[in-house]
Design a protein around this nucleic acid. Sequence first.
DNA 1: TAGCCCGTGCCAAACGTTTGGCAATTGCAC
DNA 2: GTGCAATTGCCAAACGTTTGGCACGGGCTA
Lengths: 357, 357
Amino acid sequence: MGGRDARQGRTTVTLEDVARAAGVHYSTVSRALDPTAVRRVSVDTRKHIQSVAKKMGYQPDMVATGLKRGRTQTVAAIVADLGNPSIAPVLRGIASRLEPAGFMSLFAETQDDSSRLERILNHLLSRRVDAIILTAGRVGDSRILRRFVGRGIPVVLALQGVPGIRLPSCTNDDLLGGTLAAQHLLGLGHRRLAQLRGRADVQSLSQRAKGFSKAIAAAGATEVIIPSTAPLGTADDGRRLMRVVLESKRAQPTGVFAHHDLMALGALTLAEERGLNCPRDFSIIGYHDLPNLERLVPALTTIRQPLEEAGRAASDMVLHILNSPSRQPRSHRLAPTLVVRQSTGPAPEPVIQTVRK
Amino acid sequence: MGGRDARQGRTTVTLEDVARAAGVHYSTVSRALDPTAVRRVSVDTRKHIQSVAKKMGYQPDMVATGLKRGRTQTVAAIVADLGNPSIAPVLRGIASRLEPAGFMSLFAETQDDSSRLERILNHLLSRRVDAIILTAGRVGDSRILRRFVGRGIPVVLALQGVPGIRLPSCTNDDLLGGTLAAQHLLGLGHRRLAQLRGRADVQSLSQRAKGFSKAIAAAGATEVIIPSTAPLGTADDGRRLMRVVLESKRAQPTGVFAHHDLMALGALTLAEERGLNCPRDFSIIGYHDLPNLERLVPALTTIRQPLEEAGRAASDMVLHILNSPSRQPRSHRLAPTLVVRQSTGPAPEPVIQTVRK
DNA sequence: TAGCCCGTGCCAAACGTTTGGCAATTGCAC
DNA sequence: GTGCAATTGCCAAACGTTTGGCACGGGCTA
């Protein structure tokens, strides 16, 4: 009695405890603490109850609330791969928006496995999560997702769309990204350009390719087509594709666009092993602006996507849907930006480069 | 009637729906579906009910279950920074263990902010999460955590301990890591060694330093002490500390141990800028085995920690506590391993190196 | 054939909230 | 001083599940 933190042990303090302590009925406590039901309880009882509740450390049980109200003030973000360095900023953007709105954000990982996605969605549904933000869509997932949107739980897509289902989404403008890459190289005087492409069946990558090609065509410059593509977008892929470029009999491109920073990295090291100097002999530009790569020599020019903003925008959509479920929000497309570093420079004098073996 | 997926709309199917369809009381359905209550219902009613439930797509509502049972079959893992590349494998290890045990694992991020940690813990508590795995401990957090262990919810620490509170934990053996680094360099014939240290007030880092120093002393070799430490462990820090080494008037070390791969990276580029060749003139070894760095030239020799195993071990502890809350499990300490690549080699001939400016 | 016990299924009370409805109280105008 | 409305607080039913207890019936033993 009179001690600090009188309550102890594993017991949890309920509405009824607060009511007893405050000398009112527990439903009055519930009303006093619910900001939307202000007018049902007088202002001084309200104040009194609030102070008692605070003193007792009362915290509403979201499980009970969830059962009664049908919503749990929780939004889940599902990602394919937590190890992907692009993901953390997105999740941070999500949390930054949801938290002030009174929602908790929880994260789960599919490991790019559709069956795991299904299990996660089942779990979340049975835990009555209020909405889902998905950055992990794969081709076959529309069937699974359809079951859930049918259940009335809002699903918003971030970063990538899911083919086969129409959902509000917030993606990056990869077409513009490819265009920016091309325009940068063209602006430096390069007239023969090539791209090291990622998988054609990934929409974002094919968009990058398209934006790049169109900008080159529009400027009347030449694109040296490399037919093969990179299955994974790793440094090894980059090396392999760059080898194709360098061993081609045709005139070499002086500007290269890699669809992924790691590919650019691999391409760069291979070219330097073969005696070429970047950016003197050729320029290269990557994509993603991966962390920890700024320190490379030469530091990589790249395309940066507004990841945190993508997370924020996706959360805003979710909040919008939860507040006014009447109408679906419009999908966004966010603009990437060019980050110029040392791996791109003026086009070399127009002498056909020969590879020194 | 006869159609596929007769049920539709946003309605959810409850125990009572199943009971009506199966022609039994809903409590019988509950028992038929609960594997621990097998013996209260005959085997054929059981089978019948199960098939009906499956056909109707019944899924128990964990919110209602949670309210009644007090547990939600959910474990949360809290991390400081989702962008830290060491984290994803740990979380994957956690999920891999929890999932087959019937638990869902959810992730949350503190952004290394104690107040956010407190808010997250409150949220999780009010959502009746069954246990918490924390990899985000900071010095001041013991007070916050104490409140939660008092509430009877198991907390297990992974990767790093939290000073000031005794909790079952599963950490990496940094002392051994430092020892391995030293022994590797000593085995290559290096006799003058130095370390680029991280913050002394981070326990894991001071342990690395200690292991390294002790192994050198035990071998009768010389440690060139660099007094300053790296506040962040970035490449910039590495450059700065390496500059101190190279500009010292004393005889240069030939083997260097950086407490973080990125520091090693910075140190390496600085040394090469100053005309030194790695591994001919000096060897360097990092820590963490960061992804995407294998491709560097020279590829970094480093210490790899068993991250996924740390996640698995932490989950095992959680499951153990949940199954038999009587006794606290013993804390683990996991052994890191040495990954030899190209940045370490035989010690150069014993000629005092001079830095070419 | 009577008595017991066990196997089976139903009832109803919780878990901690929210919330519509109603009763009690107050303040006001006449 | 009475009637009325407005204000405030209480009751109780729900949300979907778990689970102790009880009733019923049938098979066994005596």
